[in-house]
């Protein structure tokens, strides 16, 4: 699947160490332009940490991360900010500035291309405000522009966050558990929106999820992480929910669960070929 010549994100033996714990342990991935990649794994498996390496919010302990052709370890303050402008991110907790209006929150996505600090909606150039309103319309919330951001529901806040991400005219969209805090209906709305926008704007999307159904429905390719190691890499083409469930659970960190699963899996030929060489199964 990975085309090494055109990969927009490429990591080699990426290791991330926090004090005493190893969050990522030798992760090597290639992500090609225009694909929607889903990172699958339980909390603590390293999904967020891996995502945060793709825009330099975390720096690798060893190994390399290359994004849009730039080696992140060579980038300093200004260079890093320049790269971040081309890579948008949406978060599990939306991370809007609650007391500010929805429109001002969307405008703040353009900060990377503006100079100096901005205090208040009217300090943003008219063109930015107009574009912000267009993006807000795109996510279906144009009529909420002047409401306080913290008066919106969770699903609406995440759509505002997507509009804010669009302000960067990004080439890559990183989504860190974008629907984990939402009810099923809002989750579907948000995932559909991400997928549509990715297609419209030819974005590369890397999205971490822990709901298998959503991963299967919205992803082109699955990457499974377990305890900081990449244990699965497969296309979603032709995968059934049952098989993914098995894989997903084998990506669990709970040893007992895995052992139980091993017994189950040995009876299933189909599932076995999907299990990777992480040594335990």
């Amino acid at each position: 699947m990975a085309d090494h010549g055109t990969a927009v994100i490429r990591t080699r033996e990426l290791v991330k160490q926090f004090d005493t714990t190893t969050a990522l342990n030798g992760v090597t991935v290639d992500i090609t332009p225009g694909e929607v990649v889903v990172l699958l794994g339980l909390s603590g498996s390293g999904k967020s940490t891996l995502l945060r390496h793709f825009n330099g919010l975390e720096a690798a302990t060893s190994g390399s991360v290359e994004v849009l052709g730039q080696d992140l370890s060579t980038l300093g303050g200004r260079g890093l900010r320049g790269l971040r402008r081309r890579v948008s991110m949406v978060f599990q907790q939306f991370e809007l500035v609650g007391p500010l209006s929805v429109l001002e929150n969307v405008c703040s996505g353009a900060l990377g291309s503006l100079r100096g600090p901005r205090l208040g909606l009217l300090t943003y150039p008219t063109a930015v405000r107009r574009r912000a309103l267009d993006n807000l319309e795109r996510v279906g919330l144009g009529d909420r522009a002047f409401q306080r951001a913290d008066t919106l529901s969770g699903g609406q806040q995440q759509r505002v966050a997507i509009a804010r991400a669009l302000m960067q005219d990004p080439e890559i969209l990183l989504a860190d558990e974008p629907v984990a805090s939402l009810d099923p209906e809002s989750a579907t709305t948000v995932m559909a929106l991400i997928r549509e926008i990715a297609r419209e704007r030819e974005l590369t999307v890397v999205c971490s999820l822990h709901q298998v159904e959503l991963a299967l429905e919205w992803g082109d390719r699955l990457l499974g992480l377990r305890a900081g190691e990449l244990v699965l890499e497969t296309s979603t083409q032709g995968l059934t929910k049952e098989r993914v469930m098995a894989i997903y659970r084998s990506v669990a960190t709970d040893e007992a669960q895995v052992r139980e699963l091993r017994a189950e899996l040995s009876a299933q030929d189909a599932a076995q070929q999907l299990v990777h060489a992480d040594g335990t199964i």
């Binding site: 971040r84 402008r85 991110m89 991370e95 703040s108 990377g112």
Partner: peptide, 12 residues
């Protein structure tokens, strides 16, 4: 969170 979000968007 919002500070991280602004930083991730390339803000100074």
């Amino acid at each position: 969170g919002p500070e991280v979000a602004a930083r991730a968007a390339g803000a100074t």
